[in-house]
Amino acid sequence: MALIEVVDLDKEYVNEEVVTPVLHGLNFKIEKGEFVAIMGPSGSGKSTLMHILGFLDKLSKGKFVFDGKDVSTLTDDELAEMRSKSVGFVFQAFNLLPRTTVLENVILPLIYTKMSEKERMSKSKAALSSVGLDHRLQFVPSQLSGGEKQRVAIARALVNEPAVIFADEPTGNLDSKSGLQVMQILQELNEEGHTIILVTHEKYTAEHAKRILRIRDGELVGDEIVNNRQIANGAKELIK
């Protein structure tokens, strides 16, 4: 059974009676453990697709089945519940809370769960350790480099052990070396079994994934396996 199954998905925005179609007739499946890049130029609807798959937005028509459950018509609170349990996000702009320690930033998703204080703490520390930031727990974002910020964001996306991690242009605000580190971490997470969906407009970045879904003008125009996959290697050694 596919983790994500999308059938005839349509998305349109209605603003003062003006209907703007964004996505049209999408059909695809994503299995557990895949590393998929959703690639397309800006305005293609790839971000909207990610928002729907990540329970931040609702589809207009069609069907979205997540882990065997039809999630096309969830209420706001149910969507929040799904975000809390099943997905993690890494954003281009990091979106860390300012003046808040690295550790507290990573704990954030867990405070909306019923987890005990102790468990939250140990999970957050483990997540930060897996991105190589054990030594930065009490730092605040303004004391970190861009690459470190994004690794904190990855730790935050990981901490609730989600079924899928969404990464929206995760290297967009980083220099190439830091970007490489981030891609390496994502690849390693995928090796460990995490399902990762990467949204990007760059071919080079997309080629770090195992499969690419090409979106143009709201339609799926390509679904291919990456043959010459980019492997971000050795970059992680630079971290330590």
Partner: peptide, 16 residues
């Protein structure tokens, strides 16, 4: 606003 968006993205309900 961004903080609120983020909190919602990581699972905060409207009531939270």
């Amino acid at each position: 606003t961004r903080e609120i968006g983020l909190r919602k993205a990581v699972g905060a309900k409207n009531s939270d």
